[in-house]
Amino acid sequence: MSDTPSEHVPLRLRLAAKGIDGVTLLVLPLVVALILLFVYPFLYGLWLSFRPKDGSLLGNYAKFFSDPFLYETVGKTLWLAIPVTVINLVVAIPVALRVRLMRRQRVLTTILVLPITLGTVLVAEGMLNYFGPQGWFNRVLLTALGPQGWFNGPLMDVFGPHGWFDQTLMMGPLMTAPLISGPLKLVHNYTGVLLSLVITGFPFTFLLVLSYLTGIDPALEKAAATLGAGPGSRFRHIIMPLLLPGLAVTFCLGFVQAYSVFPSAVLLGAPSGPTRVISIAAYEAAFEQYDYSLASAIAMIMGVTLLLVVIAVLGARTLVYRGPAGGGKG
């Protein structure tokens, strides 16, 4: 080392003071990869969507919004995604509230992570068998409630013509036919897709809600209890306000997944009818008509719709508290 005390500060040290040094450079490969594989394709798709086959700037978008076969997909997708997201969330909250108190959560969470891990294609194949007309689900229903079912006779005795309601209470028959006369049609229609989205979406929603719930400092609830809040008030005044931001995020993530439904809409739904969702339209444009420009436009419309819903939900979130869910020190 030199013996002269130099007071000059090298560039390396000045950059280091800003947080840029050799370690920071480790981010570079990641950033390059994401730009090449994510940002660039997205921008390319956006550019491509304004270069339709007919040469006009907005040709694709005009086509999308004038062709009912295309623009109706938005409504159909929303008609699937919104009910599914709401159902999953409404069921997941009470279940998570209870499961959070359980000791053996891990068994349940492991079981629930199965459908997420197996993926929609496998769930579709399973559902085709299980919910099909010959499947176990319909068999159980028919055995229990069908015309020759175990419970049909007793039900008829109570609610049917000449039954207890009709004869004794003189209120008329409430049931004139068996509850189920044949196998329910649960696949290759709207219900099939809805069910598949619940099977993969409910565990996802539940696990997210559970993780947000366990993130709430239990001491806060105890504090509320010592101040005289019963279980109901604790839920209303402590848990719910702290959970709401997490619920908003959960809703968004669940919605995004349901909105982009693809394999199950094809395999379990009626892909040319009521479950012709927007991703099917995009896929067909790209890989059946080889119109990448239109496909990109549909993908962009899909992205914008998602963005609008997410912004609306997260915008509503800013109306509520969204700080840390711990007490005091984070």
Binding site: M1, S2, D3, P5, S6, E7, V9, L13, A16, A17
Partner: peptide, 18 residues
């Protein structure tokens, strides 16, 4: 931490650059 000014010495060896 790197120093912004001055120098540190152990006997005749400057160490703040190490």
């Amino acid at each position: 931490l790197s120093t912004t000014r001055g120098s540190i010495w152990l006997d005749e060896t400057r160490i703040d650059t190490m």
